[in-house]
Design a protein around this nucleic acid. Structure first.
Lengths: 125, 125
DNA sequence: CCCAAATCAGTAATGATTACTATTTTATTA
DNA sequence: TAATAAAATAGTAATCATTACTGATTTGGG
């Protein structure tokens, strides 16, 4: 990833303007409104490069889709089993990083996901 | 899942005798040594039922495979990016459950995964 | 023993993601 | 500005873990 491309810029723009932790396909749909003939493969390739490069985060909550996050600062995620939404949460410390180091493991990233029912879905019923 | 089947028993036996957090396909290979003509679909169906039933855990560490765990007590996982191994870790508390409740979220399960290099891979190089 | 529900083996289909290829774009250097 | 090589793209085909389907077999209760 050395050269500029308007496709990558559009992908980053779309991702930076949402906090919904979208999938590759959702990003594809949105970017098509900027670049109508962009290829889905281009979206996948750029998202993959950007996440390997540390510019964005790749997030897997176990729903069969890879999700992406423009916010690369460490934070936890709350995943609703009902509506599928993913919200952020800020833990004050990273106990798993500490514990794993104690155990001889070298953590690169730690992933915290709560799976349950979000406030919005609770009030609905 | 109301009736006994020797296939399900063999799957549970295999899973209970490893701590490697295997994939469906690995379990399939092992169970074939007990029931040579078992179908891969049967393994998937039973693992899915058992995990929905709370008898086993389904674990997604983002490597493209679903992993299974006979140990259903709450614990964290350390996933090595090099060899792909998954080890257990016991956190003393569940800070994300607490935090998410405070935020109006109702957590059903919390998932803690550290991604990095395991002790074994570190000593190798 | 009978029967309905559960389960199975075998196979086909699904669908998110990746790979491939010929073409276009970017950045550099003259 | 023109030439050039590397990088990126669009479009399409392939991959492969998982799920769905179907007709046969097994289970368990009466």
């Amino acid at each position: 990833m050395k050269n500029y491309s308007k496709q990558r810029e559009a992908i980053l723009t779309v991702l930076s303007q949402t906090d919904t932790h979208p999938t590759a396909n959702w990003i594809y749909e949105q970017v098509r409104e900027i670049i109508p003939n962009i290829s889905l493969g281009t979206v996948y390739r750029n998202l993959s490069q950007l996440s390997q490069n540390g510019e964005i985060l790749s997030l897997n909550v176990g729903d069969g889709f890879e999700h992406f996050d423009y916010d690369t600062t460490p934070h936890a995620h709350l995943h609703c089993k009902k509506c599928g939404c993913i919200h952020d949460a800020r833990l004050e410390s990273d106990p798993l990083a500490k514990l794993s180091k104690k155990m001889g493991f070298t953590p690169e990233t730690t992933i915290y996901v709560a799976y349950g029912i979000c406030q919005n879905c609770k009030t609905k019923n």
